[in-house]
Simulated assay, not measured.
Amino acid sequence: MENLVNLHYLDIRGANSIGRMPFGIGKLTNLQRLSAFIIGEGDGCHIRDLKYLTNLKGDFRLSGLDNVNGKDAGEAKLNEKQGIDRLVLEWSRDFKNDIRKKKLKNGC
């Protein structure tokens, strides 16, 4: 994924089998449109990759927020992405595995 440095659009709507974003997505710094960013269980620290995607614009969905802690979410710098018109935030309906109930094991 990280070799696609000139990629401008990535639409993963309808790709229901994707459980998390691929490693290296933060290196796609030319990315302007990303339909969704999915954080899988145990991957909460990867929300930090969003801080490098400064050119994002349009509609944007952020799902799997139950896998993220506040510190990592702050590092995503969503407040600096002025081009995002609509932001949809999604948590899981199943709070059994909510990261807020667990201690972080991997230091993310």
Rank of each mutant, 00 (worst) to 15 (best):
K103N: 11
L34S: 09
R13H: 03
A73F: 04
L28F: 09
N6H: 07
E41I: 02
I99N: 05
M21D: 10
I39N: 06
Q32E: 08
K101M: 04
I38P: 02
L87T: 04
G14N: 02
S63Y: 00
E90S: 06
F60K: 05
K77E: 06
L50E: 02
V88K: 09
L62Y: 12
K71G: 15
E90V: 10
I99H: 09
E41H: 04
M21I: 12
R86A: 04
K101F: 06
N3Y: 09
D85N: 12
Y52K: 05
D59A: 14
E90R: 09
I84L: 07
L4Y: 07
L28C: 15
I25C: 05
L89W: 15
K57T: 01
V5S: 13
K27Y: 05
L65R: 03
R86E: 10
G42E: 04
R86N: 04
V5G: 14
K101R: 09
W91T: 08
K103C: 08
R86W: 01
S92H: 15
K96Y: 15
G42A: 07
V68C: 07
D59R: 03
L87K: 12
L31P: 10
S17T: 14
G26M: 10
K105Y: 02
L78F: 09
G24S: 12
N67A: 12
K103P: 03
Y52T: 06
D66W: 03
L56M: 05
T54E: 05
G64C: 01
G107F: 05
N3E: 09
A36Q: 06
S17P: 03
L28K: 09
I84M: 15
R13F: 00
L65H: 06
N55E: 15
K105V: 01
C108T: 03
G44L: 11
E75P: 07
R20V: 02
N106A: 02
D85T: 10
G83E: 07
Q82Y: 08
V68E: 14
Y9N: 15
A15Q: 03
K77D: 12
L65S: 06
S17K: 10
S63A: 01
G107M: 02
C45H: 12
L62V: 12
K77V: 13
E75S: 13
G14K: 01
S92W: 09
L4V: 04
L104R: 02
I25L: 11
K96M: 13
G42T: 02
C45E: 13
I39E: 08
L62I: 07
G44E: 14
D59C: 02
I84R: 05
L34C: 12
R20Q: 15
S17N: 12
S35W: 00
I18A: 13
A15H: 00
L31W: 14
A76Y: 14
L4K: 11
I12D: 01
K105L: 11
K81I: 05
K51V: 08
L87E: 04
K96W: 05
I47T: 08
I18D: 13
S17E: 11
I18G: 04
W91Y: 07
L89K: 13
E41V: 04
E80L: 13
R13T: 06
P22M: 06
I99R: 04
N106Y: 01
H46W: 04
L50T: 01
E90L: 08
N69P: 06
S35Q: 00
